[in-house]
């Protein structure tokens, strides 16, 4: 994996030091700050590949920081939380968090999660390839063999999510939150998008890799 630039936002100095050392030991460049204000300042001129963000900061609410970071660009955010309650998780999802790690955490577990997100990021920028499908994210171009089609915005985003996490199950609520944020659409919109996506993929002449997991959501295999 190419070395990445990670922003660590954590108010506990010892924890901040530990995470910084561990990330640096695996070859990444780390900027570590202790307050939300510093985090926002860094984000202004820093070019980060990932943000590790403590939800419970002394000055600014972590959710608010996630929202602003997310609005500025699509840097993946991994949230650190000590309370792990459902409400803040859902809120964080709306605010653009990619993942959650609950304190106390196993350092190895945290590093593994960070690496997964970084891998997704390096793939998510340009070309996604899976099961004979190629998705060029920037121009929303889906191709298989010689055939290709341009996808509508939301369908492209839906397929990008599914293709960049093969095997991961996205629930309808998850997909809605990621596609729409707070502005929730009609209840069956996701089904409709999936239906259209499947038709487009089959029209390209390849088997459709999208699977419906009974009562759970969608995944690609």
């Amino acid at each position: 994996m190419p070395p990445a630039h990670v922003l660590v936002v954590e108010d506990d100095a010892r924890l901040r030091g530990l995470v910084r050392e561990a990330l640096e030991a695996t070859g990444h460049r780390v900027t570590a700050v202790g307050t939300g204000g510093d985090a926002l300042l860094c984000a202004l001129d820093g070019d980060f590949d990932l943000v590790l963000l403590d939800l419970n900061l002394p000055d600014v609410d972590g959710i608010e920081i996630a929202r602003r970071l997310h609005a500025d660009g699509d840097v993946p955010i991994v949230m650190l939380t000590a309370r792990g309650d459902v409400a803040s998780r859902v809120e964080g999802l709306y605010a653009g968090a990619a993942d959650y790690v609950t304190k106390p955490f196993d350092l190895q577990e945290l590093l593994a999660r960070v690496h997964v997100r970084l891998r997704e990021r390096s793939a998510g920028d340009g070309l996604l390839e899976h099961a004979g499908l190629r998705l060029r994210v920037d121009v929303r171009m889906l191709a298989a063999g010689d055939a290709q089609v341009t996808l509508p915005e939301r369908e492209a985003e839906l397929l990008r999510l599914l293709l960049s996490h093969p095997g991961r199950v996205f629930s309808r609520e998850d997909l809605e939150a990621r596609l729409y944020g707070d502005d929730l659409p009609d209840s069956n919109t996701v089904e409709v998008f999936v239906y259209h996506l499947r038709r487009r993929i089959r029209a390209l002449g390849v088997p459709d890799p999208i699977r419906t997991v009974r009562g759970k959501g969608y995944t690609v295999l």
């Binding site: 530990l18 995470v19 955490f105 350092l107």
Partner: peptide
């Protein structure tokens, strides 16, 4: 936090 730091 302390538990994570000690173990880590």
């Amino acid at each position: 936090a302390p538990l994570t730091v000690v173990a880590g």
